[in-house]
Design a protein around this nucleic acid. Structure first.
Lengths: 349, 349
DNA sequence: ATTAGCACTCGCGCATTTCGAGTGCTAAAA
DNA sequence: TTTTAGCACTCGAAATGCGCGAGTGCTAAT
């Protein structure tokens, strides 16, 4: 489909977009003759640009301005023109170092990675955790604290642990807790919470004897953890960086990005259904309507074949695509590797 | 010190600021004669306003505009003029409901409270967790996951729990973990991590026998959790709401607020040293330079006499002080009560 | 002490002008 | 046939000028 474009047109388009990405101004024919290595006069370039405009790759903000890429132009650039950016060794190392204290739960890692991403690319970064569908826990544990308080630890899978303080009205001793732990693991480990039957609950209550009231308490909390109500987090990091770009001096554009927080669901949906590799959504390709003229670049992080998170970047369509794409890709790959190394995928599904 | 002001001046100042807070425009003498119940002509009011301006409570954006409060004006208003706002029963209930699922760790609660705060006040909210100084843990627990992985649970105190996945190179069975748990609690519970001596570590290694390598691993992680490196989180919620206010159409003001994320330390420092009750920092009173013409209102949340968090609001100096102050106060009090009820304060300090 | 009256100030909004970058077209050159 | 030089043209951005009106401070009368 891209065959229509002559080599020369491609070259002009590439140089033009490179230049525009760098300085943000519309690019005129004059500028191109001076900068680019192509030995052509401005008139020739004007003709070519007129063609490119007619084909939809370029447009002009107004008559007496230079050309600017359209979204289609950017698309073509990303797909066929741009030269991939290889991260420098020092950059890869920086990413690695950031992740090196593996001492963290996934949500913390994602947040931290987001912050780092933002500072590396100088755009706004997203750290996304999809609504986790597990709905079942791998294992339950209890940790006594004192007579009236204990901790419920629910292990969901790779790096995903939820802990809840539980305060009881009646005193519970360690023996009861041990029993509780056994009962929970026998009847609820690996079981989809939505399919937990009343008879199972009653059986559990029976086995807990005079501490049966705990069962109701726990199942309520577990439901909170595993059920729909939980999960689905979106964090923006480094929103302020966008203010640097002239595209965002208009406050409305900014509203779009910040509005993401309100429209989390759209984005989560997008991420959950994303394919492999780095996704590049330019302008209106982006189904999240509030940010129709920004570009969203992200990649999912999988544990086995389950999406457990995503890191991304938001910025103006005029974005340093090559750098951002590589950085997102490498970072997500590293996180993926890290969590797959640490803990085998949850068995309970 | 405020004696200088006659009752009438106070009244005029109050009505003026009320009006300005409501509609944002500079207030002229004409407007005040119409609105306010004070039976005075515009000329008289003009004279009074001229006095107030000279005293520094008012100023004019330019010659042909009405008056606007200065920061000193707001200060006086907050201290002496404004009538406190009592939250409606429904509002108190809303706060309560939001907190009702006590199923959460403190950081989650703070974030959630921040989001709610932002939506209730329509300003940007802050959820702050100071660097926690505990440096000692109340209790340690282990939870086996599989042969090569287990979970370390560190209980710091009220609602503060940290869990870490730990991956080992050698297989560890439950017996080893139980032993580890006992050793950790014997030698490290309640001990300031910075005062952990090498001899203690060696003693622990001795007691762990052929699993002694675990000790080094664990202490490293514990140091990560308890040491300086951890803690100190700042979250902004609802930044987009500020875009509604004319004060923030100028992008630079917004930069100030967003810049907070960069200057977290200043703010954390401020919070750590804050007094009791709601703090109101107007404009330049605020030591965080990047936001010199916004107002910051916050209150700390204490567990015993340790500051474990803070909730606040950022907005233009022209802010609905009465409402915000009450809301922040009540919300923080509720959170405080909630955590103090759930778990006795950590003993280890 | 208060008020009516009045001249004065100055920012805002609007229309007008100027300036220049960039273009498309045409005709000449390669 | 393709490329280039030349030129008239377009149109936005910035600069300039002008009238309006809200709000003021001052003075003199109450």
């Amino acid at each position: 489909m891209y065959r229509e474009l002559s080599e020369r047109k491609k070259q002009i388009l590439k140089v033009l977009i490179d230049a525009h990405i760098e300085n943000g101004d519309p690019v005129g024919s004059r500028y191109l003759t001076e900068i680019a290595g192509l030995g052509l006069s401005s008139a020739t370039i004007r003709n070519e640009m007129a063609d490119l405009e007619e084909m939809g790759y370029l447009c002009r903000p107004h008559t007496s301005a230079g050309r600017v890429p359209t979204e289609l132009g950017y698309r073509f650039y990303v797909d066929a023109l741009m030269q991939a950016y290889d991260l420098k060794a020092s950059e890869v190392r920086a990413l690695n170092d950031m992740l090196s204290d593996r001492v963290a739960e996934l949500d913390k890692i994602l947040d931290k990675a987001g912050r780092f991403m933002s500072s590396m690319t100088n755009y706004t970064a997203l750290a996304i955790q999809p609504k986790h569908a597990p709905a079942s826990a791998f294992r339950y544990n209890t940790v006594p604290v004192d007579e009236y308080n204990f901790l419920l630890v629910v292990i969901l899978g790779a790096g995903a642990v939820k802990t809840k303080y539980i305060h009881t009205d009646l005193p519970v001793d360690e023996a009861v807790l041990t029993r509780l732990e056994r009962v929970l693991n026998r009847y609820m480990a690996g079981v989809n919470i939505n399919q937990l039957t009343l008879s199972t609950v009653m059986q559990m209550e029976r086995e807990m004897g005079d501490a049966s009231s705990l069962v109701g308490l726990i199942t309520k909390y577990v439901y909170n953890i595993l059920g729909e109500s939980d999960g689905g987090a979106l964090h923006l990091e480094g929103v302020d960086r966008l203010l640097e770009y002239p595209e965002f001096t208009n406050v409305n554009k900014l509203k779009g990005v910040l509005g993401l927080m309100e429209n989390q669901d759209d984005l989560l949906h997008l991420v959950e259904n994303a394919g492999d590799g780095v996704m590049v959504l330019i302008g209106k390709e982006n189904s999240v309507s509030v940010m129709n003229d920004s570009t969203l670049i992200f990649r999912t992080i999988k544990d086995g074949d389950r999406v457990v998170g995503a890191i991304g970047v938001i910025g103006p369509c005029r974005m340093d695509y090559a750098r951002v794409i590589s950085t997102v890709d490498v970072l997500c790959a590293q996180i993926e590797q890290m969590i797959s190394g640490g803990l085998p995928p949850a068995k309970g599904e």
